[in-house]
């Protein structure tokens, strides 16, 4: 797994300020620490997509934004990926030792889980022998956050990859992603950049076009 340094800096709120050697060195060290503590795992399932539902589960994906995202798809995949609980532990330990390192570790881990999700998507695509479009997670737009728990249930994510949910539909381990993606539809296979996203006041919005 490769951690894109530009993404790490973006999560740190970098807007092309001069980055000193100590900070860049810390970024390198913390990327190394993430790789060392991460145990990336993923799980997915393919469903037929009919009438806005995962047909074989008779489960409706709620909201207009996901419907728009999946329009045209006959099949979808639901997926769950995680870097594992040791990342959470190391993050907590670093917060006691060096808050600066903890901050950078957190940013590196965020970049890492996204990179792993991309890698996992390629894996799914290879296994299915079909292209897979951009992933869309609960919480984006009007796709309800409660869907996190349902995706985790449908995938038996707790017993297969150790992914659990909180009462508020957060995920533990913290660096985890659940998402839905269209199969063989509406996709160029590449993750779009921030320009396509609705949250224009995001502190981490990239300036790339």
């Amino acid at each position: 797994m490769e951690i894109p340094r530009a993404e790490v800096l973006r999560y740190l709120g970098w807007r092309k300020q001069p980055a000193d050697a100590a900070t860049l060195d810390a970024v390198e060290r913390m990327c190394g620490a993430v790789i060392k503590h991460a145990l990336p795992r993923g799980v997915f399932a393919r469903y037929s997509y009919k009438d806005f539902c995962l047909a074989e589960a008779e489960y409706e994906l709620k909201g207009n934004d996901i419907a728009k995202h999946l329009s045209g798809a006959k099949d979808v995949v639901i997926m769950a990926v995680t870097l594992g609980l040791d990342i959470d532990r190391e993050s907590a330990r670093l917060q006691r030792v060096s808050v600066r390192d903890a901050l950078i570790f957190d940013a590196a881990a965020s970049a890492a889980i996204e990179a792993f999700a991309d890698e996992f998507t390629e894996r799914m695509s290879n296994e299915l022998g079909l292209p897979i479009g951009m992933r869309f997670s609960p919480g984006y737009g009007d796709f309800p956050i409660e869907t996190v728990s349902d995706i985790a249930s449908l995938l038996h994510a707790d017993k297969r990859i150790g992914l659990t949910v909180t009462g508020s539909h957060g995920m533990i381990p913290l660096k985890s992603i659940t998402a839905v993606a269209p199969v063989n539809a509406g996709c160029d296979g590449k993750r779009k950049n921030c320009a396509a996203c609705l949250k224009t006041d995001c502190a981490f919005r990239s300036e790339k076009q």
């Binding site: 740190l12 709120g13 970098w14 807007r15 300020q17 001069p18 980055a19 000193d20 100590a22 900070t23 810390a26 808050v99 600066r100 901050l103 950078i104």
Partner: peptide, 10 residues
């Protein structure tokens, strides 16, 4: 914006 967060924390 001449410094960013890790530098503030350091």
């Amino acid at each position: 914006g001449t410094l960013f967060l890790p530098q503030l924390i350091a």
